[in-house]
Design a protein around this nucleic acid. Structure first.
Length: 457
RNA sequence: GUGGUUGUAGCUCAGCUGGUUAGAGCGCUGGAUUGUGGUUCCAGAGGUCGCCGGUUCGAACCCGGUCUUCCACCCCA
């Protein structure tokens, strides 16, 4: 016997029901993207390695799926790298392509390549799978979908305001209540690092600070100390650990702390603009929260940083994230184009909706009426009605085989098809169809136009 | 990449300290019911106990390896 087939770790098959539910989410996101003026693009599932490598930090490079060169790849292999145990060098010589790791970097590459055809500010959305060679975990897969919307070519903070409203609009449509959109600004983080004298340790500092929720103030201090941040500096950030109250009072504490940092103050001005704008344009569902400990690792964010958390009580990492990157296209040779964008994590949103039982019952799409098959003559009679119903937009089908009635009926039952039509010799003689309601068991004989108007309800 | 966890019928899971022929529920097939499904009753099919190796008179059970599942860390959607 053949070995049982399997699929790679961290990948999944989707059943018809799961696909319907995923499409439900995607359709809401897509229609909101378009309502806000974003245009769709798609990029290849794999890129040249050099496009991706080095854009996500060392950790990111490790998680990029590399594609082995075709043909006799050993001929070009770097033997020196192999014998000296240099995996990176060897990989570069036998692999020149890699699977897309996110949608932002390929988008930057797209903007640079198509800069002369694009009208700036360029607003694009993209809904495609990405791949990461991560170890699977709750809500973490090796193949998953991101739904991104970005704008390039505008420095305006109104874009940040728009994205917050976009998040709110999508989660409202999904009936997902209690979502919190956290906002921070990279310049504020840089300013803090500056005033405490840890400017050169910005990344280590922010990564440690980001864990406040998880490991507490003591844990953060410990990690900072381990990363070589001075005791004196750690004391100075103390006020951040106990930051409470509404957005306004938090801002005041930060104003005081960052008084001497031009960068930090600019970051606060930006935050202030966005927070005030949202105050005047209230969100319908989500809550916007200033969170100075938010530090998402992405190396390219330079201004606003966003992260969306699932409602309290649902244990799930972030279900969305984003931010502003002033110079992303600079890496590919196009300077001075600012971008800002957000991402929705489809697979995680799915898990949250499932856990909270928020998928509408109507998501499951099935055939509305199944015609039973009593033989070729009767099937032809049924098929004429099927064609007429389809022309009216009624999902209708004929059971393909002249099987036992019990089998055909239970097929309709298992597929949750609400109506069946019985059309045998008796019906043919009278020119009618027997319509059976599978839920109530009720049956009635109808002519074609009665049948059509009954099923069109 | 680090640490832990899981794997027995299509599915969910029992299976004692290593001991005859590995079980249940659901599902599936057939029948009760030749133009009526979902309920009920009867009968039946279905397993290389993830895979490879080892210990033993004897392994689903113990040991090693490997793959897979899930979880935590790192990192992230």
């Amino acid at each position: 016997m053949a070995k049982r087939p399997g699929i790679p770790k961290g990948t999944r098959d989707f059943s018809p029901e799961e696909v319907s539910k995923r499409n439900y989410i995607i359709n809401i996101i897509r229609s909101r993207f378009e309502l806000f003026g974003f245009m769709p693009i798609e990029t290849p599932s794999f890129e040249n390695s050099e496009t991706l490598l080095g854009k996500y930090g060392d950790e990111g490079d490790r998680l990029i799926f590399r594609i082995l060169n075709s043909g006799d790849f050993l001929r070009k292999a770097d033997e020196a790298a192999y014998s000296s145990g240099d995996s990176t060098g060897l990989a570069a010589s036998i692999s020149e392509k890699a699977l897309r790791y996110d949608l932002t970097v390929p988008f930057a590459r797209y903007v640079v390549m198509h800069q002369n055809e694009i009208d700036f500010p360029f607003k694009r959305y993209q809904i495609q799978p990405v791949w990461r060679a991560d170890r699977p975990q709750k809500g973490r897969f090796r193949e998953f979908y991101q739904c991104d919307a970005d704008v390039v070519g505008s420095d305006s903070l109104w874009q940040e305001v728009e994205f917050i409203r976009l998040y709110d609009a999508v989660f409202s449509d999904l009936n997902l209540e209690g979502v919190s959109i956290q906002i921070n600004n990279r310049k504020v983080l840089a300013g803090i690092a500056e005033v405490i004298g840890a400017k050169d340790r910005l990344i280590d500092f922010t990564v440690a600070l980001d864990k406040l929720d998880k490991i507490g103030a003591e844990g953060v201090k410990k990690e900072m100390a381990e990363k070589g941040i001075s005791q004196e500096a750690i004391e100075k950030v103390q006020p951040l650990f106990t930051l409470t109250g509404d957005n306004e009072s938090r801002m005041q504490v930060l104003r005081d702390l960052l008084r001497d940092s031009a960068t930090g103050t600019q970051g606060l001005d930006e935050l202030d603009f966005v927070l005030k704008a949202i105050d005047s344009l209230p969100l319908s569902n989500a809550a916007l929260k200033l969170n100075v400990t938010l530090a998402r690792g992405l190396n390219y964010y330079t201004g606003a940083i966003f992260e969306v958390s699932a409602p309290e009580g649902v244990s799930m990492g972030s279900i969305g994230g984003g931010g502003r990157y002033d110079d992303l296209t600079g890496i590919f040779g196009l300077k001075g184009v600012s971008g800002v964008g957000i991402s929705f994590g489809l697979d995680r949103i799915y898990l949250v909706l499932e856990e909270l039982d928020l998928f509408p019952a109507s998501v499951a799409q099935t055939t509305k009426v199944l015609f039973l098959n009593f033989g070729d003559k009767e099937a032809l009679y049924g098929m004429k009605a099927v064609a007429a119903l389809r022309a009216e937009g009624v999902k209708a089908e004929l059971y393909p085989d002249d099987a036992k009635m019990k089998k055909q009926m239970s097929y309709a039952d298992k597929r949750n098809i609400p109506f069946v039509v019985l059309a045998g010799t008796k019906e043919m003689e009278d020119g009618v169809y027997t319509l059976k309601n599978m839920k109530t068991g009720e049956q009635q004989q109808l002519n074609l136009s009665e049948l059509s108007s009954r099923l069109n309800l």
